[in-house]
Amino acid sequence: MTAKEQLIKAQQASEEAHQIHISCRIAERLFPKINPAIFSDVLRRKIKLSQYDNGILKFYFTFVAMENMVLKFDGIYYSRKKRHLEVAVRIPFEEILAANQTETIHLMEKAFLEGIDLIATKKLAAPFDHQAFKKDVEAIFAQENWYEEDLKKYRAMPSLGY
């Protein structure tokens, strides 16, 4: 197996193993203030969905922040067959615009926790302790500067425009 094939295989295995995927649908100018990778990196390291039972095998979360929402991007969707949950939560555009980096992170934290609350609105194929999931995520967010290490990593990338 070539080095490239090994890299592909490792990356695929990593993607399959990841239970939490976080992305965004935002106006371009809000990046990198809104950088979902910071949340994704930390939560993937610290949260295992399987410990809350197997009602949700993959959790896809999207931060939505646009000045003009001509298309509907927020909402929740659950696949009973795959046990995948997709949820998108809107953050008010004006609030993000006025916020500094730390305040933006707090707005994203709030949106993420709202997304977890939305799990209760869906009838899952199997049990899932979303309250315990929320509690553990809240504990991570409660740690001061929980995001600092990953934020530093992205700030060091000149192409991102921090």
């Binding site: 992305s23 649908r25 106006a27 371009e28 979902p36 896809y60 509907k72 998108a88």
Partner: peptide
């Protein structure tokens, strides 16, 4: 309806601007 990853054509780890 914010159907990530569907909107990303099934490719993970992408941001939509």
């Amino acid at each position: 309806q914010g159907r990530y990853p569907r909107e990303n054509f099934g490719v993970p780890d992408l941001n939509y601007f």
